[in-house]
């Protein structure tokens, strides 16, 4: 069952009078439960595609359906609601709100979703245990290592059971051991909870973990390999 359908999407950025085609007529489908990597060199358009799927950027041409909903038809507020309910994000860095503790960062999404506090507490406790950071619940991001911060970001991304988790270079700032642990965690969540993950990455290790690798080059899909 398709969770993301990208139809003939183009995205052009303007820098002064110069045009830069970040995506050029891209079409693809991502099914529920997939563990997919968007690969390619810098400037190939993988982050742009991830942003468009996540509804934080808008396509100049083409349509993107997320869970059957056309993102181009949604207003700013509706897009925000869609991101809140259906999408989890993990960014390369600066993932957490620095003034909130690890638990509060995870809980924040649930608060925005207006989930009752008793359920919130249960979910936060469970997800922190899943990512192995139950003992770090009351620590602020500055007191956590880079790997721990990314694990908290993953916990926040999946705590509200979104339709899809989009991760942009999640291992880029981590050493290989920490990166591997993070990928193990996400793979486990994909296997156990059927959470759909899409990564934008040029990390070989992430590509090795992915069951599908879509390679982008100059804004076009160069390859789409299912393992």
């Amino acid at each position: 069952m398709a969770i993301v359908t990208v139809n003939n999407v183009s995205r052009i950025y303007h820098q002064g009078k110069t045009e830069f085609k970040a995506l050029d007529d891209v079409s693809l489908t991502i099914n529920k439960g997939e563990f997919t990597a968007l690969a390619g060199p810098s400037g190939s358009g993988k982050t742009t595609l991830l942003n468009l799927i996540g509804g934080i950027d808008t396509a100049d041409k083409g349509t993107i359906l997320l869970d059957g909903q056309d993102l181009s038809s949604l207003k700013k507020g509706e897009l925000a609601d869609l991101r809140l309910q259906d999408i989890g994000f993990v960014f390369q860095s600066f993932n957490l709100i620095p003034v909130l503790t690890a638990a509060e960062n995870v809980e924040y999404i649930l608060r925005l979703q207006k989930i009752p506090s008793s359920i919130r507490r249960q979910k936060v406790k469970a997800i922190l245990a899943d990512v192995g950071l139950a003992d770090k619940a009351d620590q602020r991001p500055s007191e956590l290592s880079g790997g721990q911060q990314q694990r908290i970001a993953v916990a926040r991304a999946v705590v509200a059971s979104p339709a899809i988790v989009l991760a942009d270079e999640p291992t880029a700032n981590l050493d290989s051991v920490t990166g591997q642990k993070l990928l193990d965690l996400m793979q486990q969540m994909n296997t156990d909870k059927q959470v759909t993950f899409v990564f934008a990455t040029h990390d070989k290790m992430v590509m090795d973990y992915a069951r599908r690798v879509i390679t982008l080059k100059d804004g076009r899909i160069a390859d789409d390999i299912r393992k």
Binding site: I56, A80, D81, F94, L112
Partner: peptide, 16 residues
């Protein structure tokens, strides 16, 4: 700026 961007990406409405 980045924090506000992050919050918007996570689904915080402009009103919030």
């Amino acid at each position: 700026m980045r924090e506000f961007g992050l919050l918007q990406a996570l689904g915080m409405r402009p009103g919030c």
